[in-house]
Design a protein around this nucleic acid. Structure first.
Ligand SMILES: [Mn+2]
Ligand SMILES: [Mn+2]
Ligand SMILES: [Zn+2]
Ligand SMILES: [Zn+2]
Lengths: 140, 140
DNA sequence: GACTTTTCGGAAAATTATTATCCGCTAGTT
DNA sequence: AACTAGCGGATAATAATTTTCCGAAAAGTC
């Protein structure tokens, strides 16, 4: 994985830097769809001088080379995901966590839509919201 | 319709003003899911002194009383819709227009998701992107 | 390894959609 | 007509993201 990103960056004319590797590693090892701020603070101890702008600039490069996707879960900031497969997400309206919706096959639904529109569909995002298991328990 | 909103506003303790009626009317008579800025400039000629802040404040009230829904089509600003049914939207990546996807039945898909997650689902947004018929023609 | 070129990271300022504040004014009630 | 809670407009504030600028670091060349 560390090799994948190194090769990819270089082949696309981007330099390989510790910051870029570190930011990707946070995303790659996380299932919580961190925001720029979350990535930034997670790396504070390792890279105390890192700028938030570096996080944003790096994410844009990672998106460009196809290593991350940008999620808009209806919050005031974006979330980022190293899983670039198009998969649906769900956000808890109480604690704010954003999770994957596992094991969902959207193909049938998407094909149905494609047949009913004159648009040429190139992508889609499905966002659900609700209450996560933990928050359901707490409210009982 | 003009009566509906008047009654609704008053019954919820909001005053009925020309600006509020005008903003709702723009949304009600539009199929293009205008942003705050679009609503604002459409009303410039009729209400030259209207503030953009008034548009935002009014939209929030309209949302609160259930007359509009807020759409996040992945742009840098929100879109607003007087059709408060939960229905999918599609945005053209070339010209930027946001359209309804008509005649789509999402119930089966949503029920399938609901069965596969431990979340209690309370809502969802389906957002597609692609190329609209007009832009497809132009690129030929 | 030294030299050169190109791109980068960090700090700071800029941008921009949206929200908050403040105050004279208006809608709705009596 | 008078009263008052809520409003509209101007303006400032907020906050996520983007841009700018420059010394520094990475990759290519010898
Ligand atoms: Mn995900
Ligand atoms: Mn719509
Ligand atoms: Zn929760
Ligand atoms: Zn188009």
């Amino acid at each position: 994985m560390d090799n994948d990103i190194t090769v990819l960056l270089r082949s696309r004319g981007f330099k390989v830097t510790p910051q870029r590797l570190a930011i990707y590693e946070v995303l790659y090892n996380s299932k919580e769809h961190p925001s720029a701020e979350m990535i930034f603070s997670r790396l504070q101890s390792v890279y105390p001088t890192m700028s938030l702008a570096t996080v944003y600039k790096t994410i844009e490069i990672l998106r460009e080379i196809g290593l991350v996707q940008i999620l808009n879960a209806g919050e005031d900031s974006f979330r980022y995901d190293a899983n670039t497969d198009n998969h649906p997400h769900i956000r808890c309206l109480i604690c704010g966590r954003v999770d994957d919706l596992e094991g969902v096959d959207s193909h049938h639904f998407i094909n149905m839509i494609a047949k009913q529109t004159d648009y040429k569909i190139t992508g889609q995002q499905f966002y659900f919201y609700g209450i996560c298991p933990e928050c359901q328990q707490k409210s009982n």
